[in-house]
Simulated scan of single mutants.
Amino acid sequence: MSSPILHITNGDSTTNYLKKLHFSGDFITWREMLCEGKTTPDVGSETFWKNRFDFFKSSYKVSKQNFIDFTLKEYRNLCNKKESKEIVLWFEYDLFCQINMLAVISWLKTYRKGYHISLVCSGKIKGSKKLKGLGELTENQIHQHFKKRIDLTQDDIEYADYIWQLYCSDSPLRLETVYKFNPMSPFQYLTSALEAHLLRFPSIDNGLNQVENTILKTANSNSFSSKNQLIVKLLKNQEKYGFGDIQYQHSINQLQKLFTSFNPVKLSRKGKKVLENQMNFYSEIRTENSYLGGAKKYSFLFNNQTEKLLQITS
């Protein structure tokens, strides 16, 4: 009798959708957002989870109990599921999902060597200009994606692990040059996700990254009666990030000094000057403990003219 397939999904909504469609097998939901906060390459180790909890506690006020209940218990369930020789990964095209996907593959490389691993990745859909998440697919489209899932070779697994190691290193400079040079990679959305990642380092022009500049631009060019309306617009218009409302809420809080009001939403004079690159906000927003992967966010600057990262040497 063959063992059941193990599905590792990108979130609870995907898990629930697949169960509703009566997909057979066991399910594990990967409840993390490794695109934010400090990461270390040793996925699942004590150091790894300590870093993750410290980040959630300081940035999102997550309690230890919630972190255990929501993330760690599900991770322990994954550790206990060893009987499934076929593992199917369900992830989407955006940065949020792609970074989580790399981490999961890195973990599988270490702890599930020799298992049959395949990938379902949503994004481009025939007849649609917009990239679509798994939850936006019809029942037929989900089944087609599953039928055409990509079997990952050992080389593919090694490649994903290598990119994960670079993401977790203390410098993004090698990542900047390396990710473009694997045209045969089955991870068709990884390049654009990593490009979006590199744009999260502060711009040399005004000290804000692409996400923060987009927040100011959106606030300035629309009339919002509340912060919530601004967040709804940001969620609707984001293309490659895949962020949730709490991530935008957190980013807006960091930019509070550039707003005079959130009811209605109004930029301050300073906010407008920063948006127009007439003032640099770097020194005011900079913090020592802000990480993107393994790199300190404010140790690098993005040069918009050359589209290259520069390392700040003290």
Rank of each mutant, 00 (worst) to 15 (best):
Glu139Ala: 10
Asn80Tyr: 13
Leu78Gly: 05
Ile105His: 03
Tyr162Ser: 14
Glu158Trp: 00
Val104Arg: 04
Ser106His: 06
Val62Trp: 08
Asn182Lys: 09
Asp156Tyr: 00
Gln144Trp: 08
Ser171Thr: 15
Ser169Met: 05
Tyr167Cys: 07
Leu131Gln: 12
Met184Ile: 08
Glu92His: 10
Ile99Cys: 04
Ser169Leu: 03
Ser128Asp: 10
Asp69His: 02
Lys57Asn: 14
Leu137Asp: 13
Asp54Thr: 05
Asp69Met: 06
Tyr159Ile: 01
Ser106Asn: 09
Leu173Ser: 04
Phe53Ile: 03
Gln141Tyr: 11
Leu108Cys: 04
Phe53Gln: 02
Tyr189Met: 02
Ser118Phe: 07
Ser84Arg: 05
Gly127Tyr: 15
Lys129Cys: 05
Gly135Trp: 08
Ser185Arg: 03
Tyr159Asp: 03
Trp90Val: 03
Gln144Tyr: 12
Lys81Gln: 09
Tyr60Ile: 07
Tyr167Leu: 08
Ser118Trp: 02
Val88Thr: 15
Asp94Trp: 01
Met101Ile: 00
Tyr60Phe: 15
Ser59Ile: 00
Met101Pro: 03
Phe146Ile: 03
Ser106Arg: 08
Leu95Ile: 12
Tyr189Trp: 04
Lys109Thr: 04
Leu175Ile: 12
Cys121Thr: 11
Tyr111Pro: 01
Val120Met: 06
Tyr179Ala: 11
Ile117Thr: 04
Arg76His: 15
Cys168Val: 00
Asn77Glu: 15
Ser106Gly: 02
Lys147His: 11
Leu166Lys: 00
Asp94Asn: 11
Gln165Pro: 06
Phe91Asp: 06
Glu74Thr: 05
Ser84Phe: 12
Glu74Asp: 05
Ile157His: 07
Lys73Ala: 06
Asp54Phe: 01
Ser171Met: 10
Leu89Met: 13
His143Ile: 08
Met184His: 12
Leu152Val: 08
Phe91Leu: 10
Leu137Ile: 05
Asn66Arg: 14
Arg52Glu: 07
Cys79Met: 15
Ser171Arg: 11
Gln144Phe: 11
Asn140His: 15
Cys79Gly: 06
Phe187Cys: 10
Leu72Gly: 06
Ile87Val: 15
Asn100Val: 01
Lys124Val: 08
Phe53Arg: 02
Val104Gly: 03
Asn140Phe: 12
Phe91Asn: 00
Gln154Lys: 14
Pro186Ile: 04
Leu102Arg: 06
Cys168Asp: 03
Ser185Cys: 01
Asp155Gly: 02
Gln98Met: 14
Gly133Asp: 11
Leu173Ala: 01
Glu92Lys: 15
Phe67Glu: 04
Ile117Trp: 10
Trp90Thr: 02
Pro183Asn: 08
Asp155Val: 00
Ile68Asp: 05
Tyr167Glu: 13
Glu83Leu: 08
Ser171Val: 06
Phe53Gly: 01
Phe55Trp: 08
Lys85Tyr: 14
Thr110Phe: 00
Arg112Tyr: 09
Phe67Lys: 06
Glu92Ala: 13
Lys109Val: 12
Ile125Tyr: 02
Cys168Glu: 04
Ser185Pro: 01
